[in-house]
Design a protein around this nucleic acid. Sequence first.
DNA 1: CACGCTATGTTTACAGTGCTAACACAGCAT
DNA 2: ATGCTGTGTTAGCACTGTAAACATAGCGTG
Lengths: 191, 191
Amino acid sequence: MSTLEKSSYHHGDLRAALLSTAMEMLENGEPFSLRAVARQAGVSPTAPYRHFKDRDALESALAVEGFRDLLADLGSGRGLPASASDLAEFAVAYVAFALRRPALFGVMFGKPCDDADDERVKAADALHALLADALDHVFPDADASALASAGWGLAHGLACLHLDGKLRAMSEEEVADRVRSAFLAITSVGS
Amino acid sequence: MSTLEKSSYHHGDLRAALLSTAMEMLENGEPFSLRAVARQAGVSPTAPYRHFKDRDALESALAVEGFRDLLADLGSGRGLPASASDLAEFAVAYVAFALRRPALFGVMFGKPCDDADDERVKAADALHALLADALDHVFPDADASALASAGWGLAHGLACLHLDGKLRAMSEEEVADRVRSAFLAITSVGS
DNA sequence: CACGCTATGTTTACAGTGCTAACACAGCAT
DNA sequence: ATGCTGTGTTAGCACTGTAAACATAGCGTG
């Protein structure tokens, strides 16, 4: 599309093109629809159906990308966290991701998504595993499962509440501070 | 509608009727749309616009009801919590509400909802205040604001993750246990 | 009581959506 | 060269939210 006019009737790699323009639209906050994506990709309204069963299939593919990126964000620059404050940074990164790419975050989490053998489920499970490892690494004695749920829940809840404007809107810095405080507060309050 | 055939051209109290049938549809998991609500209420597709500016306005009204009900659920039967385990029951009730009325919960929280002076904002703030009070009551020394964020975030996050099937599906009892464990774990782990 | 105003409901219409079905063309294998 | 398959296109359906124009019911006022 960019340099070379498509001389051919066929697109070459429409599937990838659709995914990337769809992702771009998500990031730009433009209203997202199969038809809009097709339009943006310069292709007929129903062309996407050759590559995705339906709207949900496209969204799932985007979600998988999202999970990969989030995992990368969480892993980048640090090994497994060694202290409670490392954990707090984990949570900060999680929330930052959600705020930086809100629409994508919505696609990743806004659906029942009980598709059994989906690649998407695997991606989500990988995230769960990472968080469980992290918490278990910092608190080896505690009930790992409960702690993992708690840690993920806390980060996720703060992300959602901030996303939905349920907590007063604030700068990125302030949000990070608040998440950090919350995480530290709750992991150090046990009388 | 029930006992007396509407003999009149006018409905009498269409606004209330719309709200209640809409709420019913939400609870039943039926697909929710302005037109569907109108149909269900036995009225023309655009009649609701006489009572609600647009779809969002109807949803906001439903959300307000939802916040009231959730507050009632949290307050019912108990005073302000006096211990960490009371707090855990708070969280359990929060998550139970979300799982019992998932669609309503989605309406309450699935939107940016930055409408400035809305009644909806007040309802959400009331919820925030209750949670803050509760936490402050149990942990008077800690930073109340951070704790409130943390507590709400934790409960909310667990609710969302369960709703979206990100944590393995389980019975109501098991979910309650998991929430309780998570809450207790995280409030007692501060080495 | 007649008149008309306003609140409330109806009809009609338009643009946009997801999706299906029928068609068309490109390029490969035969 | 011939035809099959993969990929794209066009048409069309049922649905959505929303606006505009119309109609009526029932009240307040002359």
